[in-house]
Design a binder for these strands. Structure first.
Lengths: 353, 353
DNA sequence: TTGTAAGCGTTATCAG
DNA sequence: CTGATAACGCTTACAA
């Protein structure tokens, strides 16, 4: 392995390890002579400082950890990329971990990170402890220990932590307005799992947008998914069999939308003519669809940058305020006029067994 | 912060720090009495061992690093997820880093990981050093230092490292056979960047598959993209304007396919009738497309598991053999008969300015 | 089984 | 500006 230590460098350069250390970590009190010699020798020997030892002494690691739900969800992979790039610019290394929407895995990752003494944590919290309906013990412990932490995307009930979240109100109002002006009255919602605050927020904002447009909110038009493609497909079948035959639908994330659109394509539905569709999350695949799907999106790059900035503020002892990021509605051809006669969309469609 | 050390635990439990250490790391030589007391105190005080100090002493970190090109590419996010899960089962923590197809960023990440003394590296190598056409200095240094490392997905010319790669020959032969039996003779290829070994392999296998089916390989039917959506769109426009009017196309990854399909949809092309399309990488969006797109895919979960296993073998001092994973062709409705008259596909299409 | 003490590779302190 | 030395938190001979 790489057994070359700072002592080896110092010896080869004919100086003490203290001087070598000063040169290698850019301390001002060094002579040009020793600087040159040490640097040359270090390069030649291929010296790689041992970050373990360094941070054991200096108690900082220049490393942060990012916990997300699932890298495979484009929403999170884009967010993760933004955070990593932003942290990188600030001289911070980022460790990314997956929780798979599971609070046990979340806690395991957090424990590992704590034991590695990362300087801070950016967390997409994974919901409440199922049994007790309260934040997990690990989460409470981190808060108690005072480790710098910020939440991004989601929040946790009962935990006061600086957080960067997305508000869907603005875009949803525009989206529902667009639908109602096209004559839609029965608008379904395929939502996320209730333990995720984003799922609750999107659902509440949906209902509020209905109200703002003079429509009642109807629990029978709500399908509870889990943010994954499979549940989107289930939601699509649920909608096809729905007695009220909704003429439009809003889907709470991209994987579910892709699952749903696949089912509707198989069923021979023509989006826009038979069903108007709006989905959360702007992913390229939505532009590939025929017709392209209208989206509600957030600026994840902005949110990611803000998360890093907020974490740095916390690390500096400040208390950054919560920030909510607005959403944007992009109208596309997936919106069409509501079908003239209720149930028209079911014409000529294969029956479901 | 978390200032509770093993000394605090030892003191509170009335034993020496050595005994506390033995208890906490499961050493057999401990009395039931001290075991109980130490464990109780540790829990009560919320003791979190300092991994830095531990591995400074024991020179192992139970941590591996994974370097990929871009988390936002589903191919890599799926691979990363598989590797992480598999490592997790083996008691290893995984640090994921992005190189963005850039060998400078790759080297920076590798340096950071080396300085953190990870036990091993799983790397999707980021191509040759542009100027010198040889592996980067960092890469050579790692090899020289003997740090356990395996390559996954790609290889690097001139570097002998255990590697897990994907072979496309099998699936491509089946794919081209399917196309030729439908009458296709002018089959285009939208490929990846030449510095990626996967791009070269896919291109070579494509040519070989043509030959196996009695078709000549024509450089004029090859478009060099960069594995990202934008170049897929460029490739799509290139194909639309192509004098030979290819009747089918194979695309070397999913992001490019999505970019290309978007352009073709905008141009009013009907996939299967006007153009037959096959893409590498199985992503859900391909099933959503109308018609669903035929794919050439690899079992990334299998490849990820094998990568972790191979790395463990290297860490154990063995020398695992290279392994190549076969590919699978999934025929779907995106394949149709070649247009009867050459140029038929251009009928009624908007001209490009 | 337990305690003492040395040491992992750095950086910080304090004289010189 | 430089060098000796202690200290970071933990593990592990070596003795007891």
């Amino acid at each position: 392995m790489n057994a070359v230590t700072i002592k080896d460098v110092a010896q080869a350069a004919g100086v003490s390890s203290a001087t070598a250390s000063r040169v290698l970590s850019g301390h001002p009190s060094t002579s040009a002579a020793s600087r040159e010699k040490v640097e040359a020798v270090a390069r030649e020997l291929g010296f790689v400082p041992n970050a373990q030892a360094r941070s054991l002494r200096s108690t900082k690691t220049d490393t942060i950890a990012l916990l997300i739900s699932d890298v495979r969800n484009p929403y999170f992979s884009v967010l993760a990329h933004a955070i990593e790039q932003s942290a990188h610019e600030a001289g911070l290394m980022t460790f990314i971990g997956n929780a798979n929407e599971d609070s046990a895995q979340q806690d395991q990752f957090l424990a590992a990170m704590l034991s590695r003494r990362v300087d801070g944590l950016i967390v997409v919290p994974q919901g409440l402890d199922q049994a007790a309906q309260r934040p997990s013990e690990m989460m409470s412990r981190i808060v108690a220990s005072g480790t710098p932490m910020v939440f991004v995307d989601r929040t946790l009930r009962g935990i006061e932590i600086p957080s960067l979240t997305a508000s869907s109100a603005h875009a949803l109002e525009a989206a529902i307005a667009a639908l109602t002006s096209l004559g839609h009255r029965r608008i379904a919602f395929i939502g996320g799992p209730d333990h995720a605050s984003t799922a609750r927020e999107r659902h509440l904002a949906f209902d509020a947008a209905l109200a703002a447009n003079g429509l009642p909110s109807d629990p029978a038009l709500h399908f509870a998914g889990d943010f994954k493609a499979g549940s989107g497909a289930q939601g699509a079948r649920w909608l096809l069999a729905h007695p009220a035959a909704p003429t439009a639908v809003v889907i709470a994330d991209a994987p579910m939308a892709i699952g749903a659109l696949t089912v509707w394509r198989e069923a021979g539905l023509k989006i826009s003519r038979d069903l108007s569709v709006i989905t959360f999350d702007e992913v390229d695949a939505m532009l590939m669809h025929d017709p392209p799907i209208a989206t509600i999106s957030h600026d994840l790059t902005l949110m990611g940058r803000a998360a890093v900035a907020a974490l740095q503020a916390v690390m500096a002892g400040q208390n950054p305020e919560r920030r909510e990021f607005s959403s944007h509605f992009t109208q596309r051809e997936s919106l069409g006029p509501a079908a003239a006669s209720p149930g028209a969309m079911m014409e000529g469609m294969p029956t479901h067994e």
